[in-house]
């Protein structure tokens, strides 16, 4: 299999606080990987290191055969190949729904406005938000915002989508609509790396589950194995605590 992103010996410290230690891990093309683990274990930091919102302290991130942590690598052209969905949505407040999905395509990918709008509408339809093109972010519910945020990322037609707890900031009744969209996406062969606390969802959609604990990958494997037959003691404990 062809790996989209390969991480080698990645580490990250904030000051003298080492948050990630020697992470080795890769995402294969078309794979859906869920990252689980307790709060503070470094899941968000891992995701943010992958798209360089945090600068890793050490290690390599290999993308298309190149280490993008090399100084001469253009991080902007790397980032546009990764879609990111944030816990807090982070829609551009000054743009309406359509422009949220268009502006990146036009400014970064240099697509024409017509093409960008066509692409945006296509993905807004995928997330069921195509009727809201004129709405401003502040006029939407949390679930709607997050679906637009997903469409915005998809509109860039990235190689891999990163999700950082996309449903954690949502009211319970809106979690379902976002997870449904993500399940559909998982079914289309999109490469996805998802940090989540939704265990049922992880069990259902992932090809592989990664369990993180205190800055290291403690265990990874197929969802059936991780959830039904965890090998590591700390995985068992974590699951016992969260699944009960």
């Amino acid at each position: 299999m062809e790996s989209v992103i390969e991480i080698q010996h990645l580490s990250k410290s904030f000051g003298n606080h080492e948050v990630l230690t020697d992470i080795d891990f890769s995402v294969q093309k078309g794979e859906v990987v869920c990252v689980i683990g307790s709060s503070g274990s470094g899941k968000s930091t891992l995701l943010r290191c992958i798209n360089l919102l945090e600068k890793p302290s050490g290690g390599k991130i290999i993308y298309r055969g190149e280490n993008i942590l090399d100084d001469r690598h253009d991080i902007h052209s790397y980032r546009k190949k990764l879609g990111m969905v944030f816990q807090q949505f982070n829609l551009f407040n000054n743009h309406n729904v359509l422009n949220n999905c268009v502006v990146g395509q036009v400014k970064v990918l240099k697509r024409s406005k017509e093409e960008a709008e066509k692409t945006a509408l296509k993905y807004l339809k995928v997330v069921g938000m195509d009727q809201y093109v004129n709405a401003k972010p502040k006029q939407l519910s949390g679930g709607q915002k997050q679906r637009v945020a997903i469409a915005r990322a998809l509109s860039m037609e990235p190689d891999v989508m990163l999700f950082d707890e996309p449903t954690s900031a949502l009211d319970p009744e809106m979690v379902g609509e976002v997870l449904k969209v993500m399940k559909e996406l998982a079914g289309t062969g999109l490469t996805m790396l998802i940090v989540t606390h939704e265990m049922e969802f992880a069990k259902e959609v992932s090809d592989r589950v990664v369990f993180m604990d205190k800055g290291v990958i403690a265990e990874e494997g197929a969802p059936e194995q991780i959830f039904n037959n965890p090998k590591e003691e700390r995985t068992k404990e974590f699951l016992k605590r969260t699944l009960k």
Partner: peptide, 14 residues
């Protein structure tokens, strides 16, 4: 908010 900067950077804006 920081998220506005991060979202823009995340789609590759300089």
């Amino acid at each position: 908010e920081k998220g506005q900067f991060e979202a823009a950077q995340a789609i590759g804006m300089n």
